[in-house]
């Protein structure tokens, strides 16, 4: 339905406005992801503007597959960002999508210590989590955002980032293990200072 709407009407100014209002509903989410990629508000704004321009140009290729327009905007953002990187040759595009990505990932059986932390006070974990998230590698942080904040499924994240679903799983697993380790440290510190 969305596709036919785009095809038949997006070339008119009236429906460009419709597209705008539909897409701008997700502006905060798109900006959040842009911030994860570029880490600077003005660069993130530029990236988001390019994303919306590109989205308008390719709107007739949008197909509604149950997730709405938001994952589609994320995918375009991701493409615009990595295309600009590749063009500028500032940073190499990650090529760890196949077995390379798995090499630095712990085995799925790796025990993580934090779930038996009886002494962990959840009221005080946010500051530690905040700094731990800041310290994560960008690819882990992005997956964490798409999963934790945007609530996307693994398959949607894989499609947005153009990586295998196993890489999404391993990045998410790794990111959560790092955060769990930080909470374990916090619980230990709290236990020590408390007596």
């Amino acid at each position: 339905m969305m596709r036919s709407w785009c095809r038949s009407k997006l070339d008119t100014a009236v429906n460009r406005e419709q597209f705008e209002s539909l897409a701008l509903e997700h502006l905060d989410a798109v900006f959040r992801m842009a911030m994860q990629l570029v880490r600077h508000p003005s660069e993130a704004s530029d990236l988001v503007q390019e994303t919306y321009l590109k989205a308008l140009r390719v709107a007739d290729r949008f197909e509604e597959r149950g997730g709405g327009i938001r994952p589609w905007l994320f995918k375009i953002l991701h493409n615009v960002f990595y295309t600009s990187l590749a063009t500028a040759k500032r940073v190499p595009v990650p090529v760890d999508e196949l077995h390379g990505a798995i090499a630095d990932v712990p085995g799925p059986d790796e025990p993580a210590p934090a779930w038996d932390l009886g002494s962990l006070n959840w009221e005080f974990v946010d500051e530690r989590l905040k700094s731990a998230i800041e310290d994560l590698r960008p690819e882990y942080r992005t997956v964490l955002l798409l999963w934790g904040v945007e609530g996307l499924k693994y398959r949607e994240i894989a499609k947005i980032q153009d990586i295998p679903i196993g890489t999404v799983m391993s990045r998410l697993h790794r990111a959560r293990s790092i955060l769990a380790d930080q909470l374990a440290d916090l619980a230990e510190e709290t236990g020590r200072s408390g007596g």
């Binding site: 900006f31 959040r32 988001v48 503007q49 905040k130 955060l179």
Partner: peptide, 25 residues
């Protein structure tokens, strides 16, 4: 907690961004 922290940490889009996008579109 990851949800709560990241939502606060990742600020909302600046108000002028929406109007900038509107003009460019």
């Amino acid at each position: 907690h990851v949800h709560a922290v990241m939502q606060v940490q990742c600020r909302c889009a600046p108000p002028e961004l929406a109007s900038g996008i509107h003009q460019r579109l």
